[in-house]
Simulated assay, not measured.
Amino acid sequence: MKQKLGTASYSNIYTEALNMMMDVIKKELKLFGISYDNWFFESSLLAEDQISEAIARLDACGVLYEKDGARWFRSTDFGDEKDRVLVRSNRQTTYFAADIAYHLDKYQKGYDLIVNIWGADHHGYVARLRAAVSALGLDADKLHVVLVQFVNLYEGGQKTAMSTRGGQFIPLSAIRKQIGSDAMHLFYMMRKYTQHIDFDVELAKSQSNDNPLYYLQYAHARICSVFRQMEEQGYDYSVDTAELGNLDEAEARALMKSLLRYSSILSLAAETREPQVLLEYLRELATDFHSYYNRYRFLVEDEGLRCARLVLAAAVRCILFNGLTMLGASAPERM
């Protein structure tokens, strides 16, 4: 096609098509609540000759050799299972050479931490990339590769067959339109990224306790309803008049213990980069609140006890709101 159209025409069509595709991708990601600060194009590596620069730097380190007309990287010296080709016998560089240049660019920008998010099928690629980073004299400990397992999509109780090779897939936009961004965010975080996820569309749309989004949002809305009822019944709410010593019920103590765990849970989720830790905590907190709510009345005549229970409810509402927000979901006041 390039020969038929000519270099200039082909380049114009290519650029226009690329821009159209990127506009669609960016628009959909924005609707999903995702925004990237920077988009990196592999073509920039070629335009700026960064691939040749990376290969030359490896050569200067004495880790390349010639074999069968190709240039090889002696990656086995750095823990890889076999050596890797960087330049084929036809003088074309490999994808691996481009990946090395890309990561060299990242290191040259001075980042303290470099995180790659890959599909689990790329697990065999980790060793060779870390080998290249080490061979370049860079700190391989700065590079963290997160291997994410696949998601199985279920609709109507049936697993949906998808294949990238066969062109069979369901776009993100189609699922988002069915269940909304809130549900998608939480369902993707129901399990650790190293585990397979069975994404049940019907469950995501259901109003049941098994749906984590509904369960958490309902707990938040329930607390908001209590405070609306307080105003409707003409009660005042003051932290100063709350007699917290009256919160001696077993359910209240369990709820307060759950609240005290929030800070450590946030730290753990951030340090391990595992948001499902926060999601699971919020579900436990909501369970503790529902248990307390179902057994005790909040709007009692005793002002000190009433305000104490409302203080406890307000604390739970605050954490549910903050937690849902951090997980990319909304916290409605009415449901």
Rank of each mutant, 00 (worst) to 15 (best):
A8R: 13
S9W: 10
M22R: 07
M22H: 08
L29G: 05
F32N: 09
S35A: 14
W39Q: 12
E42W: 12
S52A: 13
R57W: 03
A60H: 05
C61N: 12
G62Q: 06
Y65M: 13
R74W: 09
S75W: 01
T76V: 10
E81W: 13
D83W: 04
D99I: 05
I100P: 00
D105S: 15
D105P: 02
K109S: 14
Y111Q: 12
L113A: 09
R128M: 03
R128A: 02
L136D: 01
A140I: 11
H144V: 15
E155G: 07
S163Q: 11
F169H: 07
H185R: 10
M189Y: 12
M190C: 04
M190E: 05
Q195N: 08
D200E: 04
E202H: 08
Y215Q: 10
L216Q: 12
Q217Y: 03
R222I: 03
Q229G: 14
E232A: 13
D240Q: 12
D240E: 12
T241I: 02
G245S: 09
T272G: 11
R273C: 11
V277R: 10
L278A: 03
E280P: 01
L285V: 03
T287H: 10
R295P: 04
F298L: 02
L305P: 02
A308F: 00
R317W: 05
M326W: 07
A329G: 14
E333K: 14
R334E: 07
